[in-house]
Amino acid sequence: MLHIGCHLSASKGYYAMGKTALSIGADTFQFFTRNPRGSRAKPLDLADAEKLNAFVAEHHFAVLLAHAPYTINPCSSSEDTRTFAREAMQDDLFRLEATPHNLYNFHPGSHTGQGVETGIEQIAETLNVILKPEQTTTVLLETMAGKGSEVGSRFEELRAILDRVALGDHMGVCLDTCHVYDAGYDLVNDLDGVLAEFDRVIGLNRLKAIHMNDSMYGFASHKDRHAKIGEGKIGTEAFERIINHPALRHLPFYLETPNELPGYKAEIELLRSLYHE
């Protein structure tokens, strides 16, 4: 079964997101934990969270994916920025226990001139502070496109972070198709080779989720501009191979394409039609 959803607004609450997802044919969804361009989070509504928990169980949803705001940067050269990242992520993980056993994804960050090695050390340091043995949420490093001073565009960089995290069983990776392709991993012409390299460096057992995005600028561009499925440089045929690949087909897929709900609904229908049951 293809488990697929899209990014939804959390402005109307958890339960509303569940109902919206179901209405467009999704059986999972992604949402921001707080203002994606700011710092504020809505007050936690435990009753609303319980309604969502019951709803997703009733409708057999796949695991949900919470996304950290873009404003966090745990490897910034600014100590204040690193402190904000740590405090926001700690708060997010506390709040996510109201919807337990789901996923929390974040962009590893940009080293802002400090160098990749320093960035890797600082990201791991933050994770070693915020992760708790008793948490139920799995934290995911997202693969990045490699623009500017981003950390995480190479599989080796993600592995280096993971190797430095004490509670490694609480960690995983989210593979973004646009980012990986833009970073120079050829999903279109060598999907098997890319996945073999991922397995060699990180381990496919660490891969917990897929961000499904076409790429506006394409292979090795390092641009990170998402396109609608089939309207970018990756193309529909490659996405058909991705969702049906034996190493990937069991994973949850999350659309982050430039769409409103009708567009997401159409993409979900398209991808379901391409899935080989």
Rank of each mutant, 00 (worst) to 15 (best):
C6M: 08
S9L: 05
G13P: 05
A16F: 02
M17F: 00
G18N: 09
G18Q: 05
A26Q: 01
A26L: 02
T28R: 14
T33Q: 03
R34S: 13
P43R: 02
P43A: 06
A47T: 10
F55G: 00
E79A: 09
T81K: 04
T83E: 15
A88T: 09
M89F: 01
D91E: 15
N102T: 06
Y104L: 11
F106Y: 11
H107E: 05
H107F: 07
T112R: 13
G113I: 06
I120E: 09
E121A: 15
E125I: 03
T126Q: 05
T126W: 00
N128Q: 08
L131K: 13
K132A: 12
Q135I: 10
T137K: 04
T143V: 13
F155N: 04
E156K: 15
L158M: 12
G168I: 15
H170G: 08
M171G: 09
M171N: 04
C174F: 00
G184H: 02
V188F: 02
G193D: 06
N205D: 15
H211R: 00
S215M: 10
H222T: 04
K223H: 13
E237N: 09
I242H: 02
I243Q: 03
H245Y: 03
H245T: 07
P246E: 12
P258Y: 08
G263P: 08
R272Q: 09
